[in-house]
Design a binder for these strands. Structure first.
Lengths: 173, 173
DNA sequence: AGCGGATTGAGAACCGGTCTCGAAACCGAT
DNA sequence: ATCGGTTTCGAGACCGGTTCTCAATCCGCT
């Protein structure tokens, strides 16, 4: 048994964003795709954020850092990150997409408040099992899945109010 | 004990579409909304189809019947049917929405083949339980939910081929 | 530094979907 | 049946997110 206080690696903690950036660099190299300044900057913004960012949010964040990337580049890069498995794309029915860092295969799902727009996440291991079962049963090879629960949260007074109204009157008021 | 061959109702079978149309008529009356020719025609198209129709599909189906309704009317009517709970809206990541008849509260979920576009449905009772649990735990009042599994089906040779390729090479080929 | 090929960016194009507002349809009451 | 007030309808303008275009630029390698 090894001494629990002994660590194998003494590398200084890089932080999640830095690790992700290393991974990105490697993935690009492997595919012989250039690691451009824009790709770095856009990935940086995404990796350092814990929120779900729209393409516009990313562009705004870049501007705030004194960086700049064309609209087309932002979209292209986000699509690339999704392809590489480093980002996940979400559609919360707002009329546009949102993106977030995807660390490994750590699947999680979303609760979306239709009142205030807050998005909270959850992970339920049984979900994975059930969906895998269903797919297997149907001869389906799963690539990805989306589980979204729309409703009203209880974070703010207005949302709690909406909850009450909804419970009383149903979908049409 | 009643004779099992005795039926309570002797009404001739109307067919699902006709029943749905009766329900629509009732819902509109109840809300004092006019039962217009266009609303009838659009609902008819949807109720008689077992597929997931886009707004464009609906317009095309109308044309084929010699009917016609403006784009705005098609969208407005589909939105109305959703509000009334007679239709369900789906987003299969195609860049537009699809609609299908919603009979009662029979929730079901979708497997979407990214190769051929086929959509198959499933219902797993445990899903309802799990999602209700999660919502309750977070103080969330559910309005609706979406469970979508994207992947490749085994219906056609090309899809099975894609399955094999995907299993071997992962998301990027 | 120089080369070949991929990326970038400004803006146009695209495309679902929504909005506008005069014309037409609906429906209950006369 | 018809009248009138109210609602819906429809053609097309409009909107906003996303993709496309293509010349200029950048990347990575020697």
């Amino acid at each position: 048994m090894s001494n629990p206080t002994t660590t194998v690696s003494m590398r200084p903690p890089l932080g999640c964003a830095a690790v992700m950036m290393q991974v990105l660099r490697g993935e690009l190299r492997e595919r012989e795709l250039p690691f451009t300044h824009q790709r770095e900057a856009i990935a940086q913004v995404l990796f350092e954020s814990t929120r779900h960012l729209s393409a516009d949010d990313v562009a705004a964040a870049l501007r705030q850092r004194g960086e700049h990337a064309g609209k087309a580049t932002v979209y292209r890069t986000l699509a690339l990150l999704v392809e590489l498995g480093l980002a996940a794309e979400h559609d919360f029915d707002e009329g546009f997409k949102r993106y977030e860092t995807q660390v490994g295969a750590a699947q999680h799902d979303h609760l979306i408040c239709t009142e205030c727009g807050r998005v909270s996440t959850f992970h339920h291991p049984e979900l994975d099992r059930i969906l895998a079962e269903v797919a297997a049963e149907k001869g389906f090879e799963t690539i990805t899945r989306q589980v979204k629960v729309f409703g009203t949260c209880s974070e703010s007074a207005t949302c709690r109010e909406a909850q009450r109204t909804y419970r009383e009157t149903g979908p049409i008021s």
